[in-house]
Every structure is written in structure tokens, then in C-alpha cells.
């Protein structure tokens, strides 16, 4: 690691100014992703601006919904009584991520901004358009066991590794952002990008902008929810595929549904058509299977991830069944 400069800040404005002044400066909060990348030489900022003490860690009920400060720790959100009661899908997703220690360090803002775990991105001696634009995508014809089946480009087939973000996508979150020119709100669905021609750009966040909070509208999905994470060991592993599923039921009929997948695309993958297809239907495995088929339209696999074409719809069915209480 190069010996960067370190600045501790106590106000959002000072933090943004500090980063804005220096093209090689980066914010650091939990550090669980950035430090990892720095140790491996994937990024080498000259200056780190410590935002971990900014007063942005509150979890506040709002007139409609909740506002979660960007510095709130993953564990704090997962254990928060109000979140557990009103947004259990989010609590479940957070609980499924990383380890207890990492959840005690990682912040909500940092989790949203975490970078892919693609092997080619991580090894600086291998080609990766995300890490070094123009070098090619090593995974495209390499080992793409973990890679995308939706929304990829020939430049990049990496997936977003977060669990929390899958739930945020399903729950219609909004990301609140502050920058040198003021504040803005970004719908969660628009926050992460698809790789297209610029896979090195993960999100629409500008370099000098800081995530200050995430808001969630009131959610009808308080009871029949399930976050399913399919992985190659029982815990502490990234998802092969994950599904955030929420149902609002009246008797056996689905009134509303929310559905998103992780581990399948460059961003948390909202399954809007499948959600629509569920509305008004009876809770049966056949209903869920049908929705899963709709969700899978347009999916395409590579040499080593064809299993995801079976696993993803199965996972959707399983998550919905568990959410509905018929598993």
C-alpha cells in the first residue's frame, strides 16, 4: 500500500470538499471493501477522507417509511427493532451477508458501493475492463461460474455481490446523495449501472458525491417475506443466486409482490414483470413457477454458469414458497 494521506472529518460538507479538492481522494467509512482493494493494489488513493464519524448513522422513522443513515452499520440496521418489524426482508438480507464482524464494520453506504468479487477484477495481472478499461474481460471466456446471466455486455459479465442491495431493490429504496452542488435523490433501480461500454463505472454516483442516507417507503411486505441465499457453503460465502421475495396476501390471493435477485447481474436485479404476474393469483407452486419463468426471460449463460438458468428460477420458486408459508 502506498502511504496515503488521511483526513478525519466531522461534517458532510467538509468531507465532500476534501474529496472534491483532490482527484485521487476517496471516502472511507467501514473500510471492509476499500481496504481490501487497496491491499491488493486494485485501487491506490492518495488521500483517504474518513467519514465514519459523520452524524449519518441514525435510523429514523419518517412520516411514510424509514430513513437509514449511510453510516449506519449493517448490524445496526439488521438488529433494529423497527426495521425487523416493518422491513423484515431487509433485516434478513443483511443478516445473510458476510460475517458478524464485517456487519459490525460495514456501513449501509459502503455496502451499496461495494465492488464485484469477480476473480479477474481482483487479480491485477489478469485482464479486466472494470479495473483497467480496455484490457478485455477475462471472465467472458474464462471461469464464469459466478457470473451474470442478465444485463451483461461483452465488456463485462461481473455481478454485484451485495445481499442488502437485493432487498433494497425489492423494497423500492431511494438513495440520498450530497455533492458539491447540493443534494439529490436517486431511485435505487437507477443507482447501479449495467456495464455496457463503461464497466469501470459501477453507479451513477459522481466522484465527489457522498451517499448520506437510504429511504424506504412504507412497505406492505411485513409478514410474508423471505430472503433466500444459495451458496456453496452454509454461511460466509457470496451468493450463487439470491432472491428477495415479499408477498402481500389476502387469504390465498396475492395482492402485491416484490421480487429481486442477486448474483445474476451487474446490479441488483428487480423482477418487475414477475411481480406483476403474481398479482391476483392464488398462492400455489404453479403460480410461482410461472412467475419464475417470466423472470427468466432473456437470461443467457456462459460456459460455466449454465446452472444458474436452472438455479435462479428454482430459487425464485423456493423463496416465494417460503415467503407464502407453503415451503
Amino acid at each position: 500500500m502506498n502511504n496515503f494521506q488521511y483526513i478525519r472529518t466531522t461534517s458532510t460538507k467538509a468531507a465532500i470538499d476534501a474529496v472534491a479538492k483532490d482527484p485521487d481522494a476517496r471516502f472511507i467509512a467501514g473500510g471492509t471493501n476499500l481496504l481490501d482493494l487497496m491491499k491488493r493494489g486494485i485501487v491506490s488513493p492518495e488521500k483517504l477522507v474518513d467519514i465514519s464519524r459523520l452524524p449519518l448513522n441514525k435510523i429514523e422513522r419518517e412520516a411514510s417509511g424509514v430513513r437509514i443513515g449511510a453510516m449506519a452499520l449493517n448490524s445496526e440496521v439488521a438488529e433494529n427493532a423497527f426495521i425487523k418489524e416493518k422491513f423484515p426482508l431487509l433485516a434478513q438480507a443483511l443478516q445473510a451477508g458476510a460475517s458478524a464482524q464485517l456487519r459490525n464494520m460495514a456501513t449501509v453506504g459502503g455496502n451499496i458501493l461495494q465492488r464485484t468479487r469477480c476473480h479477474y477484477f481482483y487479480d491485477t495481472s489478469l485482464p479486466c475492463n472494470k479495473r483497467e478499461p480496455g484490457t478485455g474481460c477475462g471472465a467472458l471466456e474464462g471461469n464464469n461460474h459466478m457470473h451474470a446471466i442478465f444485463g451483461f455486455s461483452e465488456k463485462c459479465i461481473a455481478v454485484h455481490p451485495s445481499d442488502m442491495c437485493v432487498a433494497l431493490a425489492a423494497l423500492d429504496a431511494t438513495v440520498l446523495v450530497s455533492g458539491p452542488t447540493g443534494d439529490r435523490k436517486i431511485a435505487f433501480a437507477d443507482f447501479h449501472r449495467l456495464p455496457g461500454d463503461k464497466p469501470h463505472v459501477d453507479t451513477v454516483l459522481e466522484k465527489n458525491e457522498l451517499i448520506t442516507a437510504v429511504t424506504l417507503p412504507d412497505s406492505p411486505f411485513t409478514k410474508n417475506v423471505h430472503y433466500l441465499k444459495v451458496r456453496e457453503r452454509a454461511s460466509y460465502a457470496f451468493a450463487l443466486v439470491s432472491v428477495a421475495a415479499g408477498l402481500q396476501l389476502e387469504n390465498d390471493t396475492i395482492q402485491r409482490a416484490c421480487l429481486a435477485m442477486g448474483g445474476v447481474a451487474h446490479k441488483p436485479w428487480r423482477l418487475a414483470s414477475a411481480e406483476k404476474a403474481l398479482i391476483g393469483k392464488k398462492v400455489t407452486e404453479a403460480t410461482f413457477r410461472q412467475a419464475a419463468e417470466i423472470a427468466m426471460q432473456g437470461a443467457k449463460s456462459f460456459e460455466h454458469n449454465a446452472y444458474k438458468l436452472k438455479l435462479a428460477p428454482n430459487a425464485i420458486v423456493q423463496a416465494l414458497k417460503t415467503a407464502a408459508g407453503i415451503a
Binding site: 476473480h119 489478469l126 471461469n143 461460474h145 452454509a234
Partner: peptide
């Protein structure tokens, strides 16, 4: 341990990606 034979390099050479059993396994 997974290699990319085109480069003759290990791909999952850390403890997040080379899975050893956890307590839950």
C-alpha cells in the same frame, strides 16, 4: 482451487472464494 489455464493462474486464491467449512457446515 480453480485455475484459468489460459493464464495458468489461480483464481480463487483466498479464503472468501476457496471455501473451507465454516462452523455452520
Amino acid at each position: 482451487a480453480k485455475l484459468d489455464h489460459r493464464y495458468g493462474r489461480h483464481l480463487n486464491n483466498d479464503l472468501a472464494e476457496y471455501h473451507v467449512p465454516t462452523c455452520a457446515d
